[in-house]
Amino acid sequence: MEQKIVDGFRFLPPGLKAWVKTFIPDEAYKGTIPWIPMKKPLSQATLALVTSAGISLKTDPPFDMEKEKREPLWGDRSYRKIPRGTTEKEIDCNHLHINTNHVKQDINVILPLTRMAEFEEEKIIGRLAPTAYSFYGFQWQNTDFLKEAIEPISKHMRAEEVDAVLLTPA
């Protein structure tokens, strides 16, 4: 069977597609890419999930959409912890760049906590980490984002002995 080549522009309207293509280079990244080889087979590894879908627990403050409406180049740089076992009934989802109704009906379409718990049970993965993380995917000006979100998330992951991370962007 012929190998499928994914068309990442397939779902974009023509105007947006043409615009995005004006600033996306049509070639692979030229710089140095960090690389941590898998230290153990997936069936023995602890996996954490991270999404940029703007998911928050109903008991936590939601991501800030109002400031972004006033300042279109700004995106909320905070993050939320989402415990494993969380279902769509317990979450809010705020994102100005996608339709969030799908996530609110089934969290697994972007943060597959239920599916990964099944994989843990079936020993496809070693363990699903106790905590997943959500941030807000629109980081146009992201210089402080690494310090404010990724550093504390990484620290928490180390405490939970995470080996591998699956990221699902919105």
Binding site: V6, G8, F9, F11, I24, D26, I33, P34, W35, I36, P37, M38, K39, A48, V50, I150, E151, I153, S154, M157, R158, V162, D163, A164, V165, L166, L167, T168, P169
Partner: peptide, 16 residues
Amino acid sequence: MEEAGFSTLLLSPTWE
């Protein structure tokens, strides 16, 4: 995140 010591994988609808 990879620099922090984790093997990471992005399931991306926009690989370009």
